[in-house]
Amino acid sequence: MDFTVAYNAAHEALPYMLGGVVWTVGLIVGAMLLGLLLGVPLAVLHVYGPWPVRRAVSVYVWLFRGIPILVQMYIFYFGLLSWLSGMPLFSGLGLDSPFVAAVLVLGLTSSAYQSQIFRGAIQSLPAGQLKAARALGMTDPQAIRAVILPQALRLAIPAWSNEYSILLKDSALAFTIGVVEIMARMRAIASTTHEPVSMTFLAGIIFFALTWVGVKALSLLENRVRIAGYTRQGAA
């Protein structure tokens, strides 16, 4: 192996590979937000809902945690979404785009995991919190919004940063359905340049850097919203 050749190849490929970062970041941001948007209500329903609803949430979580991301990508992209976009009602919505399919898959799966995270956080709060809010005359939805969620979401941030790094790694699977993120570009360049070693290292470094940046950013967020004396241990 010639290191100069490898280095030059990596150097040349860098701009193209970095172009993939936009797609990767797009996937993660989309998926995390979708996961948050669905995960919070799912968690609340899982804790406070009547039993059929709780059961339904459990099934949802079981489904998305039990099927591999890769298989979900195939189900959504080659199956459901291409079928839906063939129907007149949904045509022109861009449902047949690989990016949309990937965000949906990553986001729905993430919502299942995030709902578990938030549920754990809600359940770790002392029971007195809800009682105190009720004693002040709040309705349960009011209490959940004003008292429970602000605490639970703070507690969940560390787990959220773990969720981020999982999503980042899973997002690399979007290449299988044609999203031109980092992994897709790495594969393409590796086969044209016959330099798979330097290209995998390059991709590895980029993913590594993204993990680091994201985890740092989330820990900044955690510090920012921290309330003095309020820690996971303190609440448990």
Binding site: P196, A203, G204
Partner: peptide, 15 residues
Amino acid sequence: RGTPLVVQVFFWYFA
């Protein structure tokens, strides 16, 4: 833990 599994699979097989 810091790199995607699919990149690692690619490495062991292709690289």
